[in-house]
Design a protein around this nucleic acid. Structure first.
Lengths: 351, 351
DNA sequence: ATCCTCCATGTAATCGTTTCCATGAACTCC
DNA sequence: GGAGTTCATGGAAACGATTACATGGAGGAT
């Protein structure tokens, strides 16, 4: 609120040094007996500085413990060397792994990453996009929570480069999409379930406002069709990609007069919820009901039983997304990238 | 590298608007036919603006899609409304949950959070601290990877408020510590194991350069002592808080002529590694060997068998840490906070 | 010896805000 | 009706860096 009081100061004086504040470029210049321009040149590796001058400046820098002010630098150069990443849910291990991959690749390119956790709430997502834009990030990585394009329009208007990762919003031809195509893996999963004798296959989808939610459902229905399996509406429940919704959906399935003999959760958190519910009813997986999930995580190896899952190349996803975004930032074009997912069969669907 | 070329521009002209760039406060002022000072007042909720003027400015803002430049604002006000959080490992669900709690509380106070993932590497941690300091975060939340205090000294010198969370560095009396005391819970765990008949208790510790590593080991040894149990050196292996080290340590234990009948992993990732190794040898938990972990996570309910764990109040930890840091930032004093952990017994140590 | 070139360095404008102070208009009060 | 108040607004100086342009000295060519 209050801000810092502005003291008039001595015009042409030592500048920022004054009393006991943090050393500024002027202090370094004074200490090294050169101009601020020269200090700046040394800072930026400009070769037009004599070696001895350069040394003198370096000594002054260490003597004063000077650290360049990134804010001032950003204002002048109009770049923050910062990327914004808005993800849907930090507690979801898939997004955590993605975030980590993004940070790694960004650091390799000399960028920091500011995260925003949308928690699957469009309003929070909006908040983060707005904040990141105000902070003038050089580029934005977005995994949209719903298909509301209002924020995206704003971003586009602001001219900030943007890339969609994992999920995207239809009708944004200028925004590259880096994602995984799960169709083939889902088809393989349905084949796997069919081969193991399961015929009543149910699915817990994500929100229909997300592309991943729709795509996974479509692929699942197509695959059922290909195997001549029925697709009754009550074998389909919409979740919100979080554990509780998976539990609820599973409860509805199990309350049915003819419960499914296999459940496919379209993300790992909903699979966790499904397991909660199945366990609370003292049912066994896969004998009583089979279970499979989209997104593989290390814990799935050790669940009871080990869970069959569809694994995305998460790391590659994050790296590609950053590469695309950096291209855009540096004025080069960027193309969309589509990777493929793999089925990892374990015991949860049967032997 | 190149930066933006600086064009001389018309002195006293329209300023930043010029061609097709992003609208600046000058453009808003021109559009609303007021001075930039008035626009700034409206932006900052200064009451000394006539309502009709305020409306005019608001209309201009929306008409131009103006978004204040946070970088310029930060330069002027000397605050970024940003907190830095350097955590040891994003892939560790404990830190993920912590990060989420931190972000929530920070947002409630009007701050954004910039994350740095140290990946348990001191060099990376240094990099992030340096970067965050250059970006002039208003405060720093640190969970130090080792006990090297060099970076901390730098931070202290830079005058940036700092709070340690979870782990800390001894000998920094001015830095508040927000952490969990696990001693009682560890004593309870040892009692639990003893009551179930286990006598050969082994521990996988964290690095001895971390306070949490030392504290958990000490508490464990003290508890063993209290029960009159031996503490042979080969029942102690130092890990690095990551899965692979837990696997390795467990392998060493199992290769012993007299392997332990219970293993306590001092974090969840090392417990995961331990399970990997136990499973690969076709041993059963808890019949062949009991297993318990520090840090509880949702998946532990569904592992085979459900894992006994020590749960930290993660959310409260994150919230308290942010509150302490915000206090410091606003010039108020901040006290250290110590919370307590609880034992959550499940099947992995016996019935 | 003179002029030209090149190189290292300094001077000052600039980025987009915030905020101190000055200004002038509209009131109030006697 | 004049003097003092209050109030809304504008002008201009910062914040700390980068960088175009000016400057002056050394060295080379003639």
């Amino acid at each position: 609120m209050a801000g810092r009081p502005v003291t008039p100061g001595t015009p042409g004086g030592t500048g920022s040094s004054g009393g006991g504040g943090v050393a500024g470029i002027k202090d370094v210049a004074a200490e090294a007996r050169v101009s601020v321009a020269t200090v700046s040149r040394v800072l930026n590796g400009n070769p037009a500085v004599r070696p001895d001058t350069r040394d003198r400046v370096h000594r002054a820098i260490t003597a004063l413990g000077y650290r360049p002010n990134g804010v001032a630098r950003s204002l002048r150069t109009d770049q923050t060397r910062t990327l914004g990443l808005v993800i849907s849910d930090v507690l979801n291990p898939f997004f955590t792994a993605l975030a980590r991959a993004v940070e790694d690749e960004a650091r390799a390119h000399g960028y920091s990453v500011v995260f925003g956790n949308a928690d699957e709430q469009p309003a929070l997502e909006d908040h983060h996009v707005r904040t990141l834009l105000e902070r003038r990030v050089d580029g934005l990585l977005l995994s949209p929570t719903d298909d509301n394009a209002s924020q995206v329009a704003e971003v586009a208007r602001s001219g900030v480069p943007m890339v969609f990762v994992d999920r995207w919003i239809p009708g944004c031809p200028d925004v590259p999409v880096v994602r995984t195509d799960g169709r083939a893996a889902i088809a393989a999963l349905v084949g796997h379930l069919h081969a193991l004798g399961h015929r009543r296959l149910a699915v817990i989808t994500g929100p229909s406002t997300t592309t991943t939610g729709n795509e996974r459902l479509d692929a699942f229905l197509d695959a059922l069709d290909a195997h001549g399996l029925p697709t009754p509406g009550h074998y389909r429940q919409e979740g919100d990609f979080r554990a509780e919704s998976g539990r609820l959906a599973t409860a509805r399935f199990l309350d049915l007069p003819d419960p499914p003999d296999a459940v496919f959760a379209t993300d790992n958190l909903m699979a966790l919820g499904a397991m909660d519910e199945i366990r609370s009813r003292a049912l066994r997986v896969p004998e009583d009901i089979a279970l499979a999930a989209f997104d593989d995580i290390p814990w799935f190896l050790h669940t009871d039983p080990p869970l069959t899952a569809i694994a995305q190349p998460t790391e590659e996803l994050g790296h590609s997304a950053v590469r695309a975004l950096v291209s855009l930032i540096e004025g080069r074009p960027a193309r969309s990238v589509t990777l493929t997912a793999d089925l990892v069969p374990r015991r949860s669907c049967g032997e």
